[in-house]
Design a protein around this nucleic acid. Structure first.
Length: 567
RNA sequence: UGACCUGUGGUGUAAUUGGCAACACGUCUGACUCUGGAUCAGAAGAGUCCAAGUUCGAGCCUUGGCAGGUCAACCA
């Protein structure tokens, strides 16, 4: 009823964040001739994670909202960390999330030539110099945030000498670390980034695109603003830690570009999630040290991991909208992410009956070698998804937890002498419990009431509970992987620098091999999301090499239901 | 003891030109039995970091504090 309770009043009806407000102001004041152009600029040094999804949704979302454009740009200025595999996975993930950069795919490496020319311009303006000192020395001369730095002895080299040295750097005459090009700004600036920052360094590594053409590479601060400028970016959105870089970003653009147009850097808070490690460095470590089975392991917070876990693009985009955009560095509870999947999957997922921990049930008054097909609803929230046939026969499997020989007071499911409903099928009553020599229950003998076909008895009698089940001879045996959070409840949030591996949850992956699902599943390969009724949300994992279906459970169990049963 | 940024229920986000702080998640309670971890109904929970000031009236304005974050990579 009150659908516009968000206070926003944009055309799309979605919530306005502070960046939207800023853009509206820019638009009103006639900046950039009414253009809005953003970019998503990942470094291809790892797979994208849920934090990047926030940035993707923000940047592409702004373009959509204001009728502008959003570029995809790979910020590949450091060849020692970057790989083509990452480029490809990033493109796949952005597309999967539902965004399109059309023909606007760029690489910072496309600008290496222009950037190099700009470096020379800077030297010619006496705003850059070659420093021969090593990293340590340069670092020690930087001073501290509270104490000014001191100038390099090479700071006042002649323009000619700088030009020559930079040329020789470019030609590969020096080794890595021997020389760098620095901007000549202010060694006493209160902003550390303005104390003669390095703009070019020697790296003798193979670049994933330019190969061995270059051995000097521009630094982020030097390259980023210029790239934005050349692409006509109006709003360059980045995370909070770049706030102190902004003066430098502006300094480079101001000293190198001549028109009035200026891209504008705006910072927002990166996403932190509880129980979730999101630093690329740490995720890389998990992959490299085989703590997980690759970047797309369903326990990973990567977009590819979430995809295999069964998350939908819609659910991630909804999550993104829900968390908003601010400059407050906070921590979001993962339950909000999980809520977002459940919300979407509940509307769209195919319902299927399945048994994870089987207990055999024999319907003693049902004829042998007979079977029949019963109608089951595919999605109670969406009639258009129709119905399917579920085979029923004399031998069934039910969930082991659905039977108790000596039930406590509030246990209404199957126990000796009680009658329950098998969903979509019949009322059954348990008459006999078969045990093995260890006293373990191995089989139940039940009788069914043929008059209760479909799930209701003509005499109007009620049963207290409904079970789901599969027909033993028809069921497909499958493997089910139950994924839980990779990190346990004590794990620190966000990017805090601690030994995060101490907090890994040893039970984060359980593989169950004796599971049975309706045969329906076999014929519905294209439908990869299922809700196993009562058991949670699953998806078929196509990654499996085996012939049998393998399911990943998407949303971890919460214990409220179990708690209820233990009362 | 520098510069920049940020402070609204447990969490996240709102609050038109200053007008009794709203929404979502989470939590708790109840209902519903063709299974819910679903759905529905309800409840608790902040007086907006603090202090002064301006004002009939301040989360929004002013001043001063306090707290937290970021910055000293030849990473991005």
């Amino acid at each position: 009823m009150t659908e516009n309770s968000n206070g926003g009043n944009s055309e799309s009806g979605k919530k306005l964040n502070f960046i939207h407000v800023q853009i509206e102001e820019d638009l009103k004041s006639g900046k950039n001739n009414g253009r809005v152009h953003t970019r998503f600029p990942p470094e291809p040094n790892g797979y994208l994670h849920i934090g990047h999804a926030k940035s993707i949704c923000l940047n592409f979302g702004i373009a959509e909202k204001f009728g502008g454009k959003c570029n995809l740009r790979f910020d590949d200025t450091n060849p020692s960390k970057e790989e083509t595999e990452y480029v490809e996975s990033i493109m796949e993930d952005v597309r999967w999330l539902g965004f399109d950069w059309e023909d606007r795919l760029y690489y910072a490496s496309d600008y290496f030539g222009k950037l190099h020319d700009f470096a020379i311009q800077l030297i010619k303006k006496d705003l850059a110099y070659v420093d021969d000192q090593n990293a340590e020395t340069i670092s020690s001369q930087k001073g501290t945030p509270t104490r000014p730095g001191i100038e390099s002895p090479h700071r006042n080299r002649s323009i000619e000498e700088n030009l020559e040295l930079f040329q020789r750097m470019t030609e590969g005459e020096f080794d890595e670390g021997d020389k760098v090009l620095r901007a000549k700004i202010d060694m006493a600036s209160p902003n550390m980034h303005m104390r003669d920052p390095i703009i070019y360094r020697i790296i003798k590594a193979h670049h994933h695109r330019t190969g061995d053409k270059w051995c000097v590479y521009p630094m982020y601060d030097f390259a980023h603003g210029q790239s934005d400028f050349w692409e006509g970016i109006t709003h360059s959105i980045c995370t909070l830690e770049f706030e102190v870089h902004r003066p430098l970003y502006n300094w480079f653009v101001d000293h190198l570009q001549e028109t009035d147009y200026r891209p504008r850097q705006i910072e927002f808070a990166r996403l932190n999630l509880t129980y979730t490690v999101m630093s690329k460095r740490k995720l890389l470590e998990l992959v490299k040290d085989n703590h997980v089975n690759g970047w797309d392991d369903p326990r990973m917070p990567t977009i590819s991991g979430l995809r295999r876990r069964g998350y939908t693009p819609e659910s991630i985009r909804n999550f993104s909208d829900r968390i908003g955009v601010t400059k407050v560095d906070g921590v979001i509870d993962v339950s909000l992410l999980e809520y977002s999947v459940r919300e979407h999957l509940n509307k769209t997922a195919q319902r299927v009956m399945g048994v994870l921990n089987p207990l055999k049930v024999v319907i003693t008054n049902y004829p042998e070698n007979q079977s029949e097909e019963l109608d089951a609803i595919n999605n109670p929230e969406d009639e258009s998804m129709g119905v399917r046939k579920v085979p029923f026969s004399r031998e069934l499997y039910i969930e082991r937890d659905d039977f108790m020989e000596n039930p406590p007071r509030k246990f209404f499911r199957l126990s000796p002498g009680t009658e329950v409903r098998l969903r979509y099928a019949y009322f059954v009553t348990c008459n006999e419990v078969v045990k093995d020599e260890n006293g373990e229950v191995v089989e139940l003998h039940c009788t069914y009431d043929p008059a209760s076909k479909g799930g209701n008895s003509p005499d109007g009698r009620k049963v207290k509970s409904t079970l789901h089940w599969v027909s033993a001879p028809h069921a497909i045996k499958s493997e089910v992987r139950l994924y839980d959070r990779l990190f346990n409840d004590e794990s620190p949030d966000g990017h805090k620098d601690v030994d995060f591996k101490e907090f890994m949850n040893p039970d984060s992956l359980k593989v169950l091999t004796e599971c049975y699902v309706e045969p329906f599943v076999k014929d519905s390969r294209p439908l990869d999301h299922f809700q196993f009724e009562r058991l949670g949300y699953f998806n078929l994992d196509f990654d499996s090499t085996s012939e049998k279906p393998v399911f990943n459970r998407t949303v971890p169990l919460r214990d409220s239901w179990a708690k209820e049963m233990n009362k």
